[in-house]
């Protein structure tokens, strides 16, 4: 398997993100995640640069690495040119590859993201489109969005979009041959493998917890569990 630190060090983002941290805490001062969660990017940097395999493994299995919002505010401010947000991205990748992400409540959410966003990219060619922002899953979108969802074709036409039509324009249908190219790219570059890894470990976890899980889509109990569970310990 190779040492965890060595594996992290194969990720370009890790190489670019960690040039030696002097523990000044400037990143923590500016970090929106540190403000909200029990989270401290300075400690993340210090832990990984210690090269302590046990501590790195604990980090990979922790809730902590899932708290960052990838805003990259830390990149601008670090006096040593580190980017804790990039280090987090490398840690998350490795945590998923090793299946450690299912050890934490926040890590298990990767399954919901894969099912909701990952599958939508390959199905529609978009990360997000009106069809996946359902008012039930998004009550915060409010009554105007509810009205838009009930009248999407009419409103999109009024806005000059090309909703679900062929040709150029906003929210057009992405042609099957283009989706085939996307699929090919996902295959060749390792994204399909990443999706399969997330699925495999999530299914294992669902079985262990005795929660129903389907082969695709969001209509299953495990999806709703990881999408909504919050044990209330993340901010303290």
């Amino acid at each position: 398997m190779g040492k965890l630190y060595d594996r992290l060090n194969q990720d370009i983002r890790f190489i670019e993100g960690l040039n030696g941290c002097m523990n000044c805490g400037v990143c923590t001062a500016i970090c929106p995640a540190a403000e909200f969660y029990h989270y401290d990017p300075r400690v993340i940097c210090d832990t990984v640069q210690s090269k302590d395999e046990k501590l790195i493994e604990a980090l990979l299995r922790s809730e902590t690495i899932w708290y960052c919002g990838e805003c990259m505010s830390c990149k601008t401010r670090c006096p040593r040119n580190n980017t804790p947000g990039f280090i987090i991205m490398a840690l998350r990748k490795l945590s998923q590859e090793l299946g450690y992400f299912t050890d934490s409540e926040k890590g298990r959410q990767q399954f919901a993201i894969k099912r909701a966003i990952g599958e939508n990219i390959l199905r529609s060619g978009y990360c997000v489109n009106p069809d996946i922002v359902s008012p039930q899953m998004h009550p915060e979108q409010g009554p105007v969005w509810d009205w838009i969802s009930r009248n999407t074709p009419e409103i999109m036409e009024k806005m000059g979009s090309n909703y679900k039509q062929e040709g150029v324009g906003g929210m057009r249908t992405i042609a099957p041959e283009v989706l085939a190219e996307l699929n090919q790219i996902f295959e060749v570059t390792g994204c399909k493998t990443m999706f399969e890894t997330i699925e495999k470990h999530s299914k294992h976890k669902a079985d262990e917890l005795g929660i129903e899980i389907s082969d695709e889509g969001i209509g299953n109990e495990y999806f709703m569990t990881v999408f909504t569970d919050n044990n209330g310990t993340h901010n303290s």
């Binding site: 990720d11 370009i12 998350r92 993201i113 966003i117 990219i121 570059t189 990443m194 997330i198």
Partner: peptide, 16 residues
């Protein structure tokens, strides 16, 4: 198509 940005920054889509 999408640039996959939201998939990338939710860490389900690899950099490559």
């Amino acid at each position: 198509t999408t640039c996959t940005g939201i998939g990338y920054h939710t860490d389900i889509v690899p950099l490559e």
